[in-house]
Structure formats: structure tokens, C-alpha cells
Amino acid sequence: MNHSSDNADQDRPGNRRDGISLIEVIACMAIVGIMMVPISSVMRSSRQAVTHAESRSPETDLRDGSRWLRRLIQDNTLVETHSDVVVLKLNTGDYVKIYATNDELVMDNGKEAVVLMTDVLGAEFGEIKQATAPGNVIGVKMAIYVLDPTTGNKKNLTSVVSIPTQF
């Protein structure tokens, strides 16, 4: 075997690679293209989330606050309902009152009041009782009234919260 001729073939300018091939460029472009699909969807979702957060309307705040309040009533034990206040026993054993005061909807445990919503004109609550057994409460009707600070218009949302049987 003549090793000197093998080395001579490797040193010729036509046999050495200087750069990247067309196949490598195409493969790289395909990989970049595949990676751009999830990256662009994440960027689009982020932009939509920022736009939504910046353009929150009173209607959106009212719907979100009402949804949170419905879940709170469903997940805990209803103690009593009056036209302007709901009393709940939380899973922790604490009792809280939910009512509107000073343009706010608050949740008060007797020690501190937590603001649930602002620009609230009022809140009304009512029990929905079972027809066959009138003493059993099966739901709560709630109406929340808010003021749009930019337009001065009144907005309201009325919803019914079904609650599990509480015996």
C-alpha cells in the first residue's frame, strides 16, 4: 500500500471541503422553520394577553368578579342570605360576609375586609329554594351593579349560583 499517494490526493484543492453544502443549508432552514411555528404562536399569545390586560373594560371586570364570587359560593357552605349580604362558612371554618359598601364589594371575616371589586354601586342577593321542600336552599340569585368610570354608564350582571345540597 502506498500511503504517499493517498496523502497527495487529500492535499489537492478539489478534494477539500471549504464551506457548507446545499443539503446542509436546506436541512438548517427546515429545522429553523419547524422551530418558528411554536415560537410564533407563543409570541402571538403573549401579545394577545398583553392587549387584553391593557384594555380591560368594566364589563370584563364585572364578569370576572361575578365568576369568582359564584365559585366562592359554590365551594363553601351557605349560612344565610339577605337582600344585601351573603354569609358563608369557608372550608377553613371561618365565616365571611360579602356585601357592597363605599363603592366596593367586600368580603369581611370580622377582622379584615378584602376588596373583591371596585366601582360597585350595589349588590343584591336572594335565596332560591327547592319547590318540593321549601326549607332547602338550592341556589343564590345575585345581581351586581357597577359604574363605568370612563362613560358614567351603569352596568349590571345578574346570575344564578346553584349550590350543592347542604344537609
Rank of each mutant, 00 (worst) to 15 (best):
E24Y: 05
D108C: 03
H52Y: 14
T132W: 04
M36H: 08
T92W: 02
F125M: 04
T158L: 09
S5M: 14
V115T: 10
L22C: 09
V37K: 04
Q166R: 15
G65C: 05
R67W: 05
G19K: 00
V146S: 04
N91I: 13
M107F: 10
Y95P: 02
L147E: 13
A143G: 08
N102S: 14
K111S: 13
S66A: 14
T51D: 14
D6N: 06
V50R: 07
N7F: 06
T81P: 04
I98K: 00
H3Q: 11
Q130G: 01
D61V: 10
L22M: 12
R12Y: 07
G65Y: 00
Q48D: 07
M142Y: 04
V115F: 00
V137Y: 06
D64Y: 04
T77A: 11
Q166Y: 14
A123S: 10
I163S: 03
V85S: 13
V106W: 00
E24R: 04
S40Y: 04
M35S: 09
V96N: 11
A49I: 12
I98Q: 01
Y95M: 10
L90N: 03
I26G: 04
L69S: 06
D61W: 02
R12N: 07
T81K: 00
D18M: 12
L69K: 05
S83D: 10
D94F: 10
I163R: 07
V32S: 03
D119F: 06
V120D: 00
Y145V: 12
W68A: 14
K97N: 15
D119K: 03
G33V: 12
I39C: 06
L121N: 15
K141N: 15
R12A: 12
G122A: 07
I31H: 03
M29A: 15
N76G: 06
M107T: 09
I31W: 04
R44S: 15
D18G: 12
G14F: 15
Y95L: 14
E104M: 12
P134H: 05
M36D: 07
F125H: 09
G135R: 07
D84V: 05
I138F: 01
I98D: 01
S41A: 07
G110F: 06
D108M: 05
T60L: 13
E54T: 06
A133P: 00
L72M: 11
M117T: 05
I138P: 01
G33D: 11
V42R: 09
Q10Y: 09
E104F: 01
L121K: 13
D18H: 14
R70Y: 04
S21I: 02
N2Y: 13
M1H: 06
S41P: 10
A30S: 11
P149D: 08
D103H: 15
M36A: 15
G33K: 08
S5R: 12
E112P: 05
T92Y: 08
W68K: 10
Y99R: 13
R44Y: 15
I128C: 08
A131Q: 12
E54F: 12
F125T: 05
P134W: 08
I20K: 00
P13R: 08
A113Y: 06
P149G: 09
A27D: 02
I73M: 03
G139C: 01
N153E: 14
Y95H: 14
A30E: 04
D94N: 13
V32Y: 02
I20S: 03
M43Q: 06
I26D: 02
A123D: 05
V79R: 04
S5F: 15
N102P: 03
